[in-house]
Design a protein around this nucleic acid. Structure first.
Length: 401
DNA sequence: CTGCCTTTGAAGCCA
DNA sequence: TGGCTTCAAAGGCAG
C-alpha cells in the first residue's frame, strides 16, 4: 500500500491507510495521477500540489512479511521496493523539473490541458490508451519512461524495429533460426540437433529429450509440449515419454494428449532469467515473494532492457504460432484446477468496481482502490479527501464520525 | 497430493 | 470494444 510521503498525520484522521487497497502495481512510477471526470480543476490543483508528495509514495502492497526487510535492503539499493524511486533515479531530471514550482504551474493549465501530458499509445497494441485521451496524465504503463510515448511503436511492444520473422521461420528444419544473439542464454539449445530444433523456448528444459509423441507434425520437438500433468517434470522427459503411467492417468479415460503450453510472455521470460539471481541475493525461495520482487525489478528495468524481453516474447509467440497454428490458449483453459471460486469472485468484484469507477471518472488503471467509497483514486491523501468530500455518503465509515 | 500464493502479459470470452 | 478471466513459471506452504 502506498505510503503517503508527508503529512502522514492526516492518515489517522481519515484512516486512509486502512482504506486504501493497493489495486495494481501497474505504472507505479507514474505519480502524475489521473483524473478528468469530476471537478477536474479542483482535482488538478490538489494533485498538482501533490507531485512531490506522491513521488515518495511507497508502495506497500507487499503483504508478505517474510524477510521483507532483507529484501528491501537489496531492493532499496535499486528501486524495487519503490519503483518510483528507481524511476526517479533514472529520470531525476524530469521529476525534479516537475517538482519545480515554475513547472508545477504546468499542472494548472486549463482543464488539464496544460499538463505535460502526452497521448500515449498503448505500447502493446499501438493504439492510444483509452484513458490517455481522457485523462491528462503522463501515463507510463508498466513503468515506462515518460518519453516512451515519443518513440514510435510498432504493433509489438517495444519493438526494436527488427524485421519480423519470416513466415516460414522455424517451420523448415535446418533453416537458420534465431541464434543465441537473439535468444539469451537461458534459451538453451537441446544437446543435439541444434540445427534442427527451433530456438529453444524459455520453457524448454535443458536436458529435454522428447519422445516421438511430442513431435510436432513438423518433426520439431517443442518444449511447449508437456505432459498432461501440467507441470514440467524432467524425469518424465528423461523417460522419453509424455504420458504418465496409466495408474496415474486414471482421471482421464481418454488417451492423454500432450499439452501445449502457452508461450511465455516478456515478464515470464524475465522471471525465468532473474529468479536465480534474486534467490541468491535475498535467500528467499518462496516464489510468491520472489515474484513480488521480480515484479518490482521488472518495473525498474529501463525501456531498453524490457524491450529485450518483449522482443523475445514476440519471437516466441511467432514461433509458437508457426509450430502450432491450430493451438489456442483456450485449449488449456480448465487445465489448472479451478481456484477457490468465492475468493476469486470477491477479488473480481472489487476489480470490477474499480474498473467501473475508473471508467466513470476517466481514470487510468494506474489508480488505486479506495475501499470506503468503492472508488478508484490515486493514493494521494488530499485526493482521497476530495473524493470523500464529493461523495460523502459513500464514505460511510467517515460520515459516521 | 493438490491448490494457493504472487507477479505481468497475452489471449480468449462475453456483453 | 472494454471488461473480465485464465494461463504461463516457480517453489514453499497449507489443508
Amino acid at each position: 500500500m502506498p505510503q503517503l510521503g508527508s503529512g502522514g498525520g492526516d492518515d489517522d484522521e481519515f484512516g486512509a491507510d486502512d482504506e486504501m487497497i493497493s489495486f495494481k502495481d501497474e505504472g507505479e512510477q507514474d505519480e502524475k495521477s489521473q483524473g478528468s471526470g469530476f471537478t477536474e480543476r479542483d482535482l488538478a490543483e490538489v494533485k498538482s500540489s501533490l507531485v512531490n508528495e506522491s513521488e515518495i509514495n511507497q508502495n506497500q502492497s507487499l503483504r508478505l512479511s517474510l524477510n521483507q526487510n532483507h529484501n528491501n535492503q537489496n531492493l532499496n539499493t535499486g528501486r524495487a521496493q519503490n519503483p518510483q524511486q528507481s524511476y526517479s533515479s533514472k529520470h531525476t531530471d524530469e521529476l525534479e523539473d516537475v517538482s519545480k514550482p515554475q513547472d508545477r504551474e504546468i499542472y494548472k493549465g486549463p482543464a488539464f490541458s496544460g499538463y505535460p501530458f502526452l497521448m500515449l499509445p498503448d505500447p502493446y497494441n499501438g493504439s492510444m490508451s483509452p484513458s490517455s485521451n481522457k485523462v491528462s496524465v503522463v501515463q507510463q504503463p508498466h513503468g515506462m519512461h515518460s518519453l516512451t510515448s515519443l518513440l514510435p511503436y510498432s504493433s509489438e511492444p517495444f519493438s526494436t524495429g527488427s524485421a519480423p520473422l519470416p513466415a516460414d521461420l522455424s517451420t523448415k528444419p535446418g533453416i537458420h533460426r534465431p541464434s543465441s544473439q537473439d535468444i539469451p542464454g537461458f534459451y538453451s539449445l537441446p544437446p543435439s540437433g541444434a540445427g534442427q530444433i527451433p530456438p529453444s523456448m524459455g520453457w524448454f528444459p535443458h536436458s529435454f529429450i522428447l519422445g516421438a509423441s511430442s513431435m510436432h507434425p513438423t518433426g520439431i520437438p517443442h518444449p511447449a509440449i508437456v505432459p498432461p500433468t501440467g507441470k514440467h517434470e524432467e524425469e518424465q522427459y528423461d523417460k522419453n515419454t509424455y504420458m504418465k503411467p496409466d495408474s496415474e492417468g486414471r482421471r482421464e479415460k481418454e488417451p492423454k494428449k500432450p499439452v501445449i503450453k502457452k508461450p511465455l510472455n516478456a515478464f515470464m521470460l524475465y522471471m525465468k532469467e532473474m529468479r536465480a539471481k534474486v534467490i541468491a541475493e535475498c535467500t528467499l525461495k518462496e516464489s510468491a515473494a520472489i515474484n513480488q520482487i521480480l515484479g518490482r525489478k521488472w518495473h525498474a528495468l529501463s525501456r531498453e532492457e524490457q524491450a529485450k524481453y518483449y522482443e523475445q516474447a514476440r519471437k516466441e509467440r511467432q514461433l509458437h504460432m508457426q509450430l502450432y497454428p491450430s493451438w489456442s490458449a483456450r485449449d488449456n483453459y480448465g487445465k489448472k484446477k479451478k481456484r477457490k471460486r468465492e475468493k476469486q469472485q470477491d477479488s473480481n468484484s472489487e476489480r470490477n468496481s474499480a474498473m467501473r469507477c475508473r471508467a466513470r471518472f476517466g481514470l487510468s488503471q494506474q489508480t488505486e482502490w479506495c475501499a470506503p467509497c468503492r472508488c478508484v483514486l490515486r493514493v494521494e491523501l488530499p485526493v482521497l479527501r476530495l473524493c470523500r468530500f464529493l461523495f460523502p455518503t459513500l464514505h460511510r465509515p467517515l460520515t459516521a464520525t
